[in-house]
Amino acid sequence: MKFGAGYWSMAGTRLRPRHHALLYDEMIRDAQAAERLGYSDYWLVEHHFWYDGHINAELTALGALAAATDTIGIGTSCLLMPLHDPLRAAEMAATVDRLSGGRLRLVFGLGYRDEEYDAFGISRKARAPRLERSIELLDALWGTDGPIDVANKHFTYTGIEARPRPLQQRPLMYLGGFVPKTVERAAKYGIGLQLGPVISADQGRELVARYHEAAAEFGTDVSGVEIGICRDFWVAPTTVEARRVARPRLFHYYGETVALGWKLFRDPDGELIYLDRPDLLRAYASAGVDAAIVGDPDTVGEEIMKLRDAGFTYVQLRFRFDSQPAELIHGAMELFASDVMPAFAD
C-alpha cells in the first residue's frame, strides 16, 4: 500500500493568516520532508477566488517542487480541468514532467463552485464534457507524433503538437471525486482513482466495486491502476493528543472553508446548505470532521486497514489543514512514517 502526503492548499486562513511567500516556502520544505520520510507522492489542490489565497496555480507550483525534490512523485489532486484551457495545461504539465524527471501525477476533478465557473466565463453545465474532451486531448497530444487538429463543441485548435512532450509517455492520471459517475468515468478511460476525503470505508468499497464493474463494461484494463482515497489525517503519540490538535482545526476547516467558502455541502435536493440552515450546516461539518482519521498510531493503522480491505491501494494523507505550525505537521508525518507505514509495506 502506498501513502501520499496531500493535498496541500497553501491557504492563509482566518485561523492562521500567513504571507503567501512563507506558505510557498513551507510547501517546498514539506515536500522535501515527505520525500525524506518515504511518502510516495506530494499533492497540491486547486480552488479560486477565496479569501485565504487558496492555491489556484498548481502546475506553476509543481515547477518549483520539481526543482526542489529528487525522487518523490508530485501531483495535482485535483486539477479542476474544466476550468482550464487544456492545451495550456498540457504544456505546463509536460514541462513539470520533464523538469522532474518523470515524476508528475495528474488527478483531474470537475470543480463545483459557481463562482469559479462564472469568473472564467465557463458554464458549470459544461464541466463533464469539458473534462472528457480534455482527457481525450491529452491522450491525442501525447500519443501522436505529428501535429493534430481538434474541433469539438468545447475546444478548437489547429496544428498543435506536444512541445515539450512529457518525459513519461503519459503521466499517471486519475480522477478525483465522490460519486459513482466519477468512478464510471475513470473506468471508461482506464485511469486511476483518488476519491475525496469524506467518503466512508463502506461507501468507498461500493465505489471501488462499481469502478471494476464499469471497467468490465467498457472493456478497459485497469489492472495495476492505483485506487486511492484521501483522508484528513492526524496522528500523535496518544489519541487524546491527536484529537486535541486536529478536531477544532478540522471543524473550522469544514465549517468555514468547505461549507461557507467552497459551498460544497448540498442537501439531497441539491440545494446549498448555508447559514440560513445552521443546524444542518453544523451536522454536515461534523460529518466531515468525523470522517477524518485521527488518533494514535494503532488507531490510525486500524482505520487504514479498513480502507485497504475496501479495495484501496493508496491513501492520500492530508496532514495540513492550513492552520497548524509546520513543526507539528512534520512531527505527525514522521510519526506515521516510522510507526505506521512499515506495517503496510507490500
Partner: peptide
C-alpha cells in the same frame, strides 16, 4: 512550454 513552470523551478 510553460515559462511559469520553468520560472518557478
Amino acid at each position: 512550454g510553460s515559462p511559469f513552470v520553468l520560472a518557478a523551478a
